[in-house]
Structures are given as structure tokens and as C-alpha cells.
Nucleic acid binder design. Structure first.
Lengths: 236, 236
DNA sequence: CCGATGTTTTGATACGGAGCGAAACGTTCT
DNA sequence: AGAACGTTTCGCTCCGTATCAAAACATCGG
């Protein structure tokens, strides 16, 4: 939560060192879609032996960039939280903004809607956040984003049934800067839950590969009913 | 401008390697307030010899993280652009969010108003951005933020004279996520120009040290006239 | 209980790069 | 022109760590 000046040189260098090895960078990138993967698969993805991969994973774990879930003889690694995913996205900026002034890289589908870690991002994510704010369904405060009761009611009416967690407005939402759109979308537990609900309800489906999300015709209709308007950029 | 998946392992590792050395990290941090500093001063700040510092600065320059301005026998280094500053701020997140849930680090003055690279950030920066959007003086689109003619007129009336660049609405504004407030403030050339104008007009002055900005009584009055309301968090 | 599979630990090697002193280069001042 | 200063280049040493093979460990299947 601090700004860069409160980070000392050693803390910054420590994070940098974790990213500095191509093998570790490859592991982090292959986990940046929010999936969990076992050590062997990450070793193959990074192009190193199992022993080497294990050492790298240990460092990333101790450095706080990864989380671990043990299941039998498999050990599943995933990004520690969405702050790590946001950091990875932020690091893409200085490398590419000078090279081109195009508003975004990747295919049109990825620009339009995708997962940022595990919540909705891209033009659709930004438009959804805007619409919720504009209609007073979402409140932005210093502490974060909060879904108001009116907003939860509207979402439930629209068909977004959140099973276990009926109290969507209890979840903490966090503004997450969309690096392709340069605007805020909804992240944090709230963003994850709403995105999961949209997937469950068939408003969105995951592309066969990559991080793109494809909205269904029904999903677009429902979203339009909530005031979500995709700009002209999304229509071409 | 691309997202993390379009960044390959080698590009990410290269950026990481540049940050991985405490001496280089110290140089970047001491430049993160937007100032330009000669090589010798950066060597002292990093605690290394002139020869070592020169090698580090060469790497940072070639890596695209720094820019160089030669003046006589002095060579002034600065951050290449505000994308680099934003990246440094983003890297502070994963290291501290788990450690504490406090809304922000630093002193109250820094939380209230400070420079983010060279534009206004903190509670005042966020509130100013909100007010400009709410009153229709600022337009947010996928391409970025744009000051509308009505907004420019109001600012000029309030006493913000921008000398060279009278066409404030021609400048490109960029949403910049405030990591202490988790909300958007105005960055990019537009943000830099408006902040410089506020400093010129005496609405703000720089703290004697650090990145804090101190609003004057007159400045607060003028800002209030524009609809800027500091939340309860800023008043304690 | 034993072999197969997934993962980590250990030991050994090799490479990159961070550091400094000395020297070279360029600029400013007298 | 010569001296002083800021900066970079060169040559060298030394430490950290990435890598793999082999062995140890843990879990699952029969």
C-alpha cells in the first residue's frame, strides 16, 4: 500500500532478483492466468530440469510471489495474490510503450475482455466498472470498492446467482488498473466473485486458449441492461 | 501497453535484472521523485564508487529505464518516463500488502498530497480527479483522459495560468492508479502541466524534503470552488 | 510390501557480473 | 596552457548463483 519511496533498495532489489532469471520469469508468466500448476509442469514450461525448477519455486515461495497447495504427491503452485499479477502487468509497460503507441497489444478478443489474474479486465471490465459506478451500484472509497445493496439486488435480478456467498456486498473490491485501457476495473475478492458468477451464468466463457473471455449474446444483453456500453473502440 | 502474457520471459527477466542490484535500485528510488541527478550524486546515494555507478547507469540507460541529459561536464540522469515511475510504485504492493492492512504508509502529509513522478497524487490528487470528472470538466475514454474546453475555462478563471502551453485541453491525460488510495488520479502530460501550474500559482508548495506537497489556504479555497472535497480520511 | 511416479535435497561445476583502482577522456576555471 | 573536476573505460579479483546428476523423500498403485 505504500508508494515507491517507502520501499528500500533491498526490498526492491529482492523482488527484481526473483524476476531476473528467465526460468523464474517463465514460471510466473505461465501462472499469470490465475491457474495452479504442479512443479513438473512448471519445469517443462521453463525449460529446466526438475531439480532446478524446485530450487526456483522455493525461492519464489519464500519471496512471497507464489502460494502453494499440496495435494497428494503433487505440489500445486500459483501466484500469491492479484497484487503479484498486477505487478507483472505493470512491468510490461516501460518495455513496450516506447516501441509503439498502439492502444493495446494482443488480439482484439484479448483487448475486449480477458482475465486479469481471476477477475474481468479489458474493455468490458472497464465498462462494467464504469456502469456500476455511474448508476450508484458501486461505491469507491479510500478503503476500496464496495458493492452497495442496490447493486447486489440488480445483479441478482439479472440472473447472477452467487451460490456460497450470497452477500456479494460483503466482499472487498479493489481498484485494479487495466494496463491496456489505462483505466480502473474491479479486482479483489469482489471482482473475482462477480467474474466467477458471470462465467457460471453463461454471460462469459473462457477462450479455448489464452486469457481472452468471450461474452455470449445473452451476456451482452444482460450487461447492456445494467448500463454497460462498449465504446466505439470495442466495436471494430 | 500489452498485458503480461505478451511479455516473454527474457523481457521480464531483463527488467528484473536491472532492479536486482541494490545499487541500481537505490539510484532508481532516488530518482522516483522526478528529479534529474548527476552521476556522482547517484554514486553517493547508492554507496558505490564512481566507476561502479557509471557501469550501472549505462545498463539502466540501455535498458530504457533512464534518460540522459548532458550539460557541460555533468551528465544528468532521470527516469525515462512516468511508466517507469508507475512500475516502481506497482512493485511496492506485493511486498507490503500482506505485511499490513494500514491504508497507507508514510506520514499524513505524504498521504494527503504528494508527487507521483511529476504529477499530483494522494488524497488531494484523487479528489481533484473525481471532482473534474463529476462536474464534466474531464472526459475519460479508452484512449485516456481529456480536459474539456469547459474545464480549461474554469481552471483559467480560477487563476491557473499555464504560460507556454495555453491549450491545456490538447495535452494527453493518463489515468494513474494511486497505490495508497487505490483510486485513479490524473497523470500523463496533462497531469504534469496542471500540477506545475498549481505550484506556480501558489496553490501548492513542495515540502522541504520528501515528495509531500503542501496545499496553501488559498489553494484549498480555490480547489473547493472547483468541487474538490477532501474525505474524512484526509481531515484527521 | 514393493515398484513407479512426482518432488526435493545434496554435491559439484561453471559462468555472469559487481566491485575497485588506475588511467583516459572531456569540460570548466584561472 | 595548465590545473581541477566530473565521468567513463579498462583490467582484474571475487562472490553469488544457475545448472545438472545422483540420491533421498514422499505418495500412489497394485
Amino acid at each position: 500500500m505504500r508508494d515507491a519511496t517507502s520501499l528500500n533498495r533491498y526490498q526492491l532489489a529482492e523482488v527484481g532478483a526473483l524476476l531476473a532469471e528467465p526460468a523464474r520469469a517463465a514460471m510466473l508468466l505461465s501462472l499469470s492466468d490465475g491457474t495452479s500448476r504442479p512443479a513438473g509442469e512448471l519445469a517443462r514450461a521453463a525449460g529446466v530440469g526438475a531439480a532446478t525448477a524446485s530450487a526456483h519455486l522455493k525461492r519464489l515461495l519464500e519471496g512471497g510471489l507464489l502460494a502453494l497447495h499440496v495435494q497428494g504427491r503433487h505440489r500445486y503452485y500459483r501466484l500469491a495474490d492479484d497484487d503479484v499479477a498486477a505487478m507483472l502487468e505493470a512491468m510490461a509497460m516501460p518495455r513496450t510503450s516506447g516501441a509503439s503507441l498502439r492502444p493495446a497489444g494482443g488480439g482484439p478478443a484479448v483487448r475486449r475482455a480477458r482475465t486479469c489474474y481471476r477477475h474481468l479486465a479489458g474493455q468490458l471490465g472497464v465498462a462494467f466498472c464504469d456502469a456500476m459506478l455511474a448508476r450508484g451500484y458501486l461505491h469507491a472509497a479510500s478503503e476500496g470498492l464496495q458493492l452497495l445493496p442496490a447493486g447486489e439486488e440488480v445483479l441478482v435480478e439479472a440472473g447472477l446467482a452467487v451460490e456460497g456467498v450470497h452477500q456479494l456486498s460483503r466482499l472487498h473490491g479493489r481498484g485494479c488498473l487495466d494496463w491496456t485501457e489505462r483505466r480502473l476495473h474491479i479486482g479483489g475478492p469482489l471482482g473475482v466473485a462477480m467474474t466467477a458468477a458471470m462465467l457460471d451464468a453463461g454471460w462469459l466463457r473462457r477462450a479455448s486458449q489464452g486469457r481472452a473471455l468471450v461474452p455470449s449474446a445473452d451476456g451482452l444483453r444482460r450487461l447492456a441492461g445494467l448500463g454497460v456500453r462498449l465504446g466505439e473502440a470495442a466495436l471494430r
